[in-house]
Design a protein around this nucleic acid. Structure first.
Lengths: 149, 149
DNA sequence: TATTAATTGATTGTACACAATTAAAACTTA
DNA sequence: TAAGTTTTAATTGTGTACAATCAATTAATA
């Protein structure tokens, strides 16, 4: 009995051919790479990204933070509340515009930066890619990010 | 009054210099790019990835599915249950090894593949990157995935 | 100025993602 | 073969993500 001929499989629908899957998988693997290093700081990876931004700027509104991290308030509000509970930052309404919530790093939050100094190198070490190659890759990815933003 | 001299800022701790952030942001942006296309199939992006695998293999254990997608049962079990409720697949214990749960595509699940044919092209269109460049980028990302796996 | 429109966060609800634990079954080996 | 180990999913609990909605406030304009 002959098999009913299937339509030719679409190679574009194969998992291995998907750029999207590589990005998705890599993103989760990178988070896992950071995790043991971030355990020392007792922060999660998204919280670490918030700290990176605040170490640069110290004070930002939720809106501005969201613009930099490409995250909305539905994600940031509970995350920031957890960080506030741990005394790494404060959240308060802007008196000049009561709609806006301003996030400010505490001394403790600023102090964490010292403990984070070695993290980028330790991660780069595990990625085992030459810095120039990494830079090229990062530029390409940033182009795509800009394109889709 | 002079400012207390801060330690020189570590450029490696700047958000813009982080490969990790580009990957993280791009992954979420890609998911958002897929979302309106996947709405027609009424699936989420991770569910779409499960379908991609099953369209290739039809029947796999949860374990095998997890190996291909790099996801564990804590993620897959509830996701597969939702897909089972929608009749796209069935879940049943392997009689030869009762520890194993075998996932099989239903006719309805297989039928979805036809509706998905145009999706890769439509996404590629939005990425506006020449196919050869995309292939190079994908290869680099896959290398990193392999490295971290 | 009164009304409308736009901005900004918070809230709610759904769906991942994963660590840690549990439980059942299968395998190993003394 | 009995005891201990390994394998495999499920469960539980925490923490993102994000769409949709709501509420408060500000800005714009008729």
């Amino acid at each position: 009995m002959d098999k009913i001929p299937e339509s030719a499989p679409n190679p574009l629908l194969k998992l291995d051919n998907q750029l999207c899957f590589s990005v998705y998988a890599l993103s989760r693997l990178i988070t896992k790479t950071y995790q043991p290093l971030l355990e020392q700081l007792d922060v999660t990876y998204p919280q670490y990204l918030v700290l990176l931004v605040l170490w640069e700027h110290n004070t930002l509104s939720v809106k501005q933070l969201g613009e930099k991290l490409l995250l909305d308030s539905g994600t940031l509000t509970p995350l920031l509340k957890r960080m506030e509970q741990r005394q790494w930052l404060s959240r308060q309404r802007d008196p000049r515009d009561e709609r806006s919530v301003v996030v400010t790093l505490t001394d403790a939050g600023r102090g964490l930066e010292r403990n984070a100094q070695q993290i980028p190198e330790q991660v780069a070490e595990r990625l085992q890619m030459a810095p120039p190659e990494l830079a090229v890759l990062r530029t390409q990815l940033q182009q795509l990010v800009t394109l889709l933003t």
